[in-house]
């Protein structure tokens, strides 16, 4: 039986824009584009014994003390936050035994032997504020990244961040990063 073909009416697409707008506004409002950023650090693995004794010469350790009043003591001398980066750089780059060819340190015999042996130890009180801790941590990381940038510029003429992975490893070999965050103790106050 031949039925009459009815013409299909065209769907009105005029309201499509309205629907899309509605969705658009919803996503506009709910969207948050913040990327989490922070100072990346690595913790030492847990050991049952209280910290094991390591054979590190006194001069190869750069001690940064932060007390509960947020005051700094670096290598047994008062220091300001602004000095941390410079002092840390001098210490890492010191090259006391001359085995580091790329270093430009002062070669002070009473400071670190070479960057491979240099260890930075940050010690804080339980009452130290998080704010100053992050700032000091930031300055210490900054000291390493400045040294690495310097050598990257000298050797490859580029910033550390722009180097290939192989080159980065080469530089990390010259300036390995040893920053230890000791467990907090009571340091005055």
């Amino acid at each position: 039986m031949a039925s009459k073909k009815r013409p299909v009416p065209e769907i009105n697409a005029g309201s499509m824009a309205d629907i899309a707008f509605l969705l658009l506004i919803f996503f506009l409002v709910t969207t948050t584009m913040d990327v989490d950023k922070g100072l990346l650090v690595k913790l030492p693995p847990w050991t049952e014994e209280s910290s094991e004794e390591q054979d590190i010469k006194e001069k190869n350790i750069f001690v940064v003390l932060v007390n509960s009043q947020d005051q700094l003591l670096i290598e047994e001398e008062y220091a300001a936050l602004e000095d941390v980066r410079r002092l840390a750089k001098e210490f890492i780059d010191n090259n006391g035994d001359g085995s580091c060819e790329d270093c430009r340190g002062l070669r002070d015999p009473n400071s670190s032997d070479n960057p491979k042996k240099a260890v930075i130890s940050i010690q804080n009180d339980r009452g130290t504020s998080y704010k100053i801790f992050v700032a000091v941590r930031n300055e210490l990381l900054g000291a390493y990244s400045e040294l690495r940038n310097d050598i990257a510029q000298r050797k490859f003429g580029r910033d550390y961040d722009e180097l290939s992975e192989g080159d980065i490893e080469l530089i990390n070999e010259v300036y390995p990063q040893f920053i230890s965050e000791a467990e907090p103790v009571k340091i005055g106050g």
Binding site: D36, K37, G38, L39, L40, V41, K42, L43, P44, P45, W46, N124, D125, R126, G127, T128, S129, Y130, F133, V134, R137, N138, E181, E183, P184
Partner: peptide, 25 residues
């Protein structure tokens, strides 16, 4: 926040073998 609390958390993380840490800033 005081570092005492944060250090306690750091010790817990070490016990949990979660050693990669980021101080968000």
């Amino acid at each position: 926040a005081k570092m005492g609390l944060i250090s306690d958390i750091k010790q817990e993380l070490r016990k949990a073998q979660a050693l990669k840490l980021s101080y968000s800033a």
